[in-house]
Each structure stands twice: as C-alpha cells, then as structure tokens.
Amino acid sequence: MTAAPTLSFYSDPTEFLAAAEPYLAADPVRGTVVASVAHRMAARRAEGVALPENDWWLVVRDASGAVVGAGMRCAPFPPRPPFLLSMPDQAAVALAHTLHRRGERVRAVNGALPAVRVCAEEVARLDGGRVEVAQHTRVHVLDALAPPAPVPGALRVASAADIDLVVAWFGAFMADADEQAGRPRGTSAHEAPDRAELLRRIRDGRVWFWTDGSGRPVHLTAANPPSFGVARVGPVYTPPEQRGRGWAGNAVAEVSRLLTAEGARVCLFTDQANPVSNGLYARIGFRPLVDMANLVLVD
C-alpha cells in the first residue's frame, strides 16, 4: 500500500520557499502564482511588514520526502480561496480533511486541475454544498514573439504621479473582465487595489502605460518581478472607449520584449471565456500550457 502524502504547513513564506524551491523551480510557469506571491510576501516580511496571521503555505511530500505539490491560502479577499498547484489526488483529499479538522471554512478553491476539483469536491462532501465553476483560466507561455501591426503612440513606465489612474484601472480590470467573458460584472472574487502595493510595483518599474500620439495614457499593462526565472504579465487593461485600436497587443508585445531582454521567461493568464484576449495573445506568440480553474462551493 502506498504511503499517504505528508502535508507541511508554513506561516513564513521564506521558510516555504526554502522547502518548495526544487518543486517550484522545476516547473516555474505552472507555479508562477504561488512563487511570485511567496517572493512578494517574503520581501514585505523582510521590510518589517506584518503578514496576516491566518495565511499559510503548503508543501506536499511523498513517502521518499520528495516535494510533489504545493499551495497557499493568502488571498486577502473573501472567501479567501486556497490556491493549489498540482498534487496527488490523495493529497488534495487529505488537505480538505485537514482544513475541516482545523475549522477553516472553505467556500472556494483556485488553481491547477485536477487538484482543485478533487479538493473542492471533498470539502463539499465534508461541509455540504456543491461545486460550481466560477472561472476557467489558462496559463500561456511566450514562445517566439510576433509583434502586431504598429499603432500610434509608445510604451512608457508609470510613475508615482500616476498612482490614482493605476488604482482606478486595476480596480476596473476584474469587473470589466467579467463583462467581456459574458458574466455579470463583479462575479469574480478579487482583491481590491492596494495603493501601497501598487506604489511598490510602480517604483519597481513593473507598471506601464501605452500612450497615444498625444502622450495620453490609453492602456495599462503590468507584470510581476521574475520568480524562478518566470515573469507573469498582468493585469492587461484597456478602458472600454479605447478598445479595438491595437493598444493592448502592442503594449503586451513591448512589455514581453523588455522582460525577455532581462532574461525572463514570460507567461500570462487568460479567462477561457474571453475569446478576444485568447486570440490576441495567440497571435503575438503565446501558446497555452495548462488549464486552471476558480471553483466555488454553493450552499
């Protein structure tokens, strides 16, 4: 009989990264969300910022001690869905039981399939409710960049003076993404823009505007600093009145070129229900790598 996987929880993202590094580094595109959030939170902790006491990081080990899965529960927005990477089904079930015993109420699970579905279905069996798909997502990785037809204007890095516009456009991104995917605005749970965190991203040079011929910002593209050599682009936002003019394709292509020049491998997430963005990224050289999902438990 195969020994059950071991679940190890960490409250310190630095300790988690030390334990999970071989697993995350072996497949850094699939692990981009967990790795980038862990690195960001570790940096904040090193700066003396207190992290939420109920956050956790998970490492799954097999009988030999090898790391075979990872996850986290650090979402600052309700219902604080755990985010899981690939792991054996047995581990996903064990996680549901562990959280149930700890009294952690779980009403959503995000991340890699099939682990998220296995975990969510076991949570539903233990705590009641049924599992529904809130959003099917897909991770794409850049192969060879194919720049789109040029449009007027240019990319420029955002500055601290742009913070109000950056906050507004980050806030509009998720609601507009719901609408573009055919869902009611505000359906997807998401983090409200954190002004201090956005200022950090601006000062790190990780937020850009595409400006039109007059120098006016008409589009925003951001990216995360590389984690294990992979930089994730997002969000990508164009106000409704500026769409269909080529701003997004040119901005994402130029940002991807800059990140590649830094030595990073570039990836991004798309909503599978949005054919416009999926088609755009395919045309400029991104290929789908892995499907993920945001699942909710409905009472």
Rank of each mutant, 00 (worst) to 15 (best):
V116E: 06
P148D: 02
V131A: 00
V133L: 12
P184D: 05
A94Y: 05
A19L: 01
E47N: 11
R105E: 12
Q135N: 15
V34S: 06
S256V: 05
F83I: 13
N224I: 10
A94P: 06
R30S: 04
V218Y: 06
T6C: 10
A293L: 08
S11N: 14
R102H: 15
V60M: 00
L165P: 10
D204H: 09
F16I: 01
P147D: 03
T32Y: 12
A168C: 07
A38S: 04
A158K: 09
L145S: 01
L165W: 05
E122W: 07
S214T: 15
A120P: 01
V131T: 00
A43E: 11
R201C: 03
D143S: 10
A175D: 15
W208T: 12
S8T: 15
A189P: 14
P239T: 09
L24K: 03
L165N: 04
D27S: 09
E254M: 05
N278Y: 13
V236C: 07
F209K: 02
C74N: 15
A293D: 07
S277A: 15
V166D: 02
E191W: 07
A20K: 09
F83K: 07
A273D: 13
Y10S: 06
R206L: 09
R206I: 05
L7S: 04
G103Q: 02
R185T: 10
E121I: 07
A293E: 12
G263V: 14
Y237Q: 00
T211L: 06
F228P: 14
D62I: 03
H140M: 09
P225H: 09
G69F: 10
V218P: 15
V33H: 14
A160Q: 11
A192F: 09
G186P: 00
F269I: 05
H136R: 15
D27R: 15
A75K: 13
H100M: 06
P193R: 06
W169F: 05
R125H: 06
P22H: 01
F228A: 04
R102C: 07
